[in-house]
Simulated scan of single mutants.
Amino acid sequence: MSRVPGWLLRHRIIIEPYLGDSSTGALYGAAQQVRAFVDEQTRAVVSAGGEQVTSSSTAYTAPGVTAPPLSRVTLPSGRVTTVIAALSRDGGGLPTPDHVEIQLQ
């Protein structure tokens, strides 16, 4: 297994994991700063619910990072966005960089 090289993770993002809803709104866990490579490109993706939605950014992180759908993410620009899906990209032993792809609204 080959992890994405740390020198490629040039950005820092802040992930606040979505915990659920309360009577006052969404609940989030403790914020954690994560090294990532952020690609601000608009593209169509499919959400966990099966709907086609527009993703305005994608963050690539090291394996093991968790970001449940609806988690709040602060990008290096200061823009706050929401996780559509977090996908584990594992090469299965091939010489490709294993990573987590976080699709953001």
Rank of each mutant, 00 (worst) to 15 (best):
R3K: 10
P5L: 14
P5S: 11
G6Y: 13
G6V: 11
W7Q: 06
W7D: 05
L9G: 01
R10G: 01
H11C: 09
R12C: 11
R12K: 14
I13W: 15
I14F: 06
I15A: 03
I15Y: 03
I15H: 02
E16T: 03
P17L: 03
Y18D: 03
G20Y: 03
G20K: 10
D21Q: 11
S23I: 13
T24E: 08
G25N: 11
A26Y: 03
L27H: 11
L27S: 10
L27E: 10
Y28V: 02
Y28E: 03
G29C: 06
A30Y: 13
A30S: 10
A31L: 05
Q33G: 06
V34G: 00
A36W: 01
A36P: 02
A36G: 07
F37K: 04
F37P: 00
D39C: 15
D39K: 14
E40D: 15
Q41L: 12
Q41C: 13
Q41N: 07
R43E: 14
A44N: 07
V45N: 03
V46T: 09
V46K: 02
A48S: 10
A48M: 09
G50W: 06
E51R: 13
E51P: 05
Q52W: 06
V53A: 13
Y60V: 09
A62I: 05
P63G: 00
P63N: 00
P63D: 01
G64L: 10
V65H: 02
T66E: 06
P68D: 09
P68S: 15
L70A: 11
L70R: 09
S71Q: 08
S71N: 13
R72V: 04
R72L: 14
T74I: 02
T74W: 01
L75W: 03
P76A: 10
P76I: 09
S77I: 12
S77V: 12
S77A: 12
S77R: 12
S77W: 13
R79A: 10
R79Y: 10
V80Y: 04
V80W: 05
T81Q: 08
T82F: 12
T82R: 15
T82K: 08
T82C: 08
V83T: 06
V83A: 02
I84S: 01
I84F: 05
A85E: 14
A85N: 08
A86F: 02
A86V: 01
A86D: 01
L87K: 09
S88Q: 13
R89V: 15
D90N: 10
G91V: 03
G91M: 10
G92Y: 13
G93W: 02
G93C: 03
G93Q: 03
L94C: 12
T96P: 00
P97M: 00
P97V: 01
P97Q: 01
D98V: 05
H99Q: 06
H99P: 00
H99L: 07
V100N: 00
E101A: 08
I102N: 00
Q103W: 05
Q103P: 06
L104F: 11
L104T: 04
Q105N: 10
